[in-house]
């Protein structure tokens, strides 16, 4: 059970003056239940890549498999795929259109042809999942704040109860609190319901804190595809492609170079602090002993 891409190429506007190869020979797999991150500089092809995962964009060449089935097969149920692989676009609040938040969230499940009660149950549940209070349900989406709109839009996808949740830069343009709230909520979803999550971001700090695996994109190609600590070891190469390892990585590397035996794989501030503390703890012990 997974999403698998084999030798996927994608070209925008082929045969015109604006022809642009956005993806080159992508081979990737997103196994069930994983929290994966995709990171890359602006224009590296992240958004194009994720639109392949639910069949919105058809690869110029190559194949995409969902649960082992070729989604480009003639009779493949594409609509079904779109409900199972939920894709939250960048700035999803711009797609809100209904008179109130609740009806907008109902749009997705309604399109699945579910009975009215089920639709409303799901919408209600989804809005709770993203932590939007009930007093906002009947408000016009345009009366909400930026962060609240974003949550409402994410709820619109969650209400379809997808097996895989893909989010394209869900924190773009939010303040630090709004950013942490949304990412924490996504992590909770992942932990409690075990759904597969693919998080697109261009912030290493965001990604490092949550994901189990990082795919690094550069100019339409996959540069790295590994566990975060393994990817961060290549921090010099990451800098060359306009990215950077989390700041703590630099601190830990510098400490290691000065002869302190700390964990250079610590990816979060908390992890790094613990590692440094334990180093000094051992240091004290050795001196005393």
């Amino acid at each position: 059970m997974s999403i698998k891409l084999e030798h996927v190429n994608y070209i925008y506007s082929p045969g015109t003056a604006y022809e642009k190869q956005a993806l080159t020979d992508i081979c990737l797999e997103f196994p069930d239940g994983q929290f994966a991150g995709i990171i890359g500089h602006t224009g590296s092809g992240k958004s194009t890549l994720i639109q392949h995962l639910n069949g919105l964009v058809r690869a110029t060449s190559g194949t995409v498999y969902y649960n082992g089935e070729d989604i480009y097969r003639e009779d493949y149920p594409m609509k079904d795929l779109r409900s199972r692989v939920g894709l939250v676009f960048q700035y999803p609040e711009y797609q809100l259109f209904e008179v109130d938040v609740f009806s907008d969230v109902c749009f997705g499940p309604k399109n699945l042809g579910l009975p009215k009660e089920e639709v409303e149950k799901r919408a209600y549940h989804a809005l709770q999942q993203v932590g939007l209070k009930e007093k906002y349900f009947k408000k016009s989406p345009f009366e909400l704040s930026g962060g609240q709109k974003r949550r409402a839009a994410i709820a619109g996808i969650l209400a379809m109860q997808p097996e895989v949740l893909i989010l394209d830069e869900p924190t773009a343009g939010l303040d630090p609190k709004g950013r942490d709230d949304i990412l924490d909520q996504i992590q909770l979803l992942h932990r409690e319901q075990g759904i597969t999550v693919v998080l697109v971001s261009h912030s290493m700090e965001d990604i490092a804190r949550y994901v189990e695996r990082i795919v690094v994109m550069d100019k339409g190609r996959v540069r790295f595809n590994d566990r975060p600590e393994k990817v961060f070891e290549h921090y010099r190469e990451l800098e060359q492609i306009g990215l950077a390892a989390p700041q703590v990585t630099y601190v830990m590397q510098a400490l290691r170079e000065r002869g302190m035996d700390v964990d250079i794989h610590a990816a979060t501030v908390e992890g790094a602090a613990a590692s440094i503390r334990s180093y000094f703890g051992n240091f004290e012990k050795r001196r005393e002993g």
Binding site: R82, V88, F89, Y94, F107, N111, L112, G156
Partner: peptide
């Protein structure tokens, strides 16, 4: 927008 609504099952 079309793609975003299609991702929500719009036809």
């Amino acid at each position: 927008i079309m793609k975003a609504q299609m991702a929500r099952g719009a036809d």
